[in-house]
Amino acid sequence: MKKLLIFILILFCTLVFAELPDGNKLLKQIDENMYAKNMISTSQMIVHGRRSSRTMKLRSWTEGDDRSFSEYLAPPRDAGTKMLKLKDKLWIYNPSADRIIQISGHMLRQSMMGSDISYEDMMEENELTEVYSAVTTGEEIFNDVNCWKLELTAIVEDAPYHTKKVWIDKEKLIPLKEERYGKSGKLLKTTEILEVMKIEGRWYPKRMIFKDILKKGKGTEFIIDDIQFDVNIPESRFSKAALRK
């Protein structure tokens, strides 16, 4: 028993004093793993409300950081709702009104389809290395997985979150947990990846939970059913005309 204790203590010390990998390098590896030139996915979004939970199905087309298009497939009420993001603009199409509305100003702050994700959050999907510089601060076990713990600080002025803490799966190099902080150090949002999957040779999140810390509630679950990388997406997909089709 005593031996075991000493062993653990030594192990612990080695872990603490072991040289930590360079944060920026890790970040780059994540980007390389997660980032695809373009992808098409089908996913589910589960919104946990105060009274009941709702599952929405959607199909998304993404190209780089700047362009994405998504269409809601279910439930019937939301089916046919489409969103188009081009750089810093966001349009939404609603079939019952047959209108395309640009989301701006006040509306950007609203939650998207009742989830913990706001339209503003939608607008902000950049490669981590473009926006942040990282320092590895240690290692931690998250959900039984050995992780590097990274602290990210914004290097550009208009990064929506000034700092982030990220827990990275040492083996699979995907961020299992992310905490987003304001400039003053207040925790604003968290993302946790609960399940991962291997697709076309890369590890990718399967099931995750987004949570707006300031809001009351159980957060929003996101499940990716199907994803294809580096497929050809016709140019016409990212046009306002596609919203109405």
């Binding site: 409300g49 009420r77 709702t81 939404i92 609603n94 019952s96 009104a97 509305i101």
Partner: peptide, 16 residues
């Protein structure tokens, strides 16, 4: 005119 709001469950509601 189009009215934009959100449903009882928070989804976007839009109608003419």
């Amino acid at each position: 005119v189009t009215i934009i709001g959100s449903t009882m469950y928070g989804s976007m509601a839009m109608d003419n």
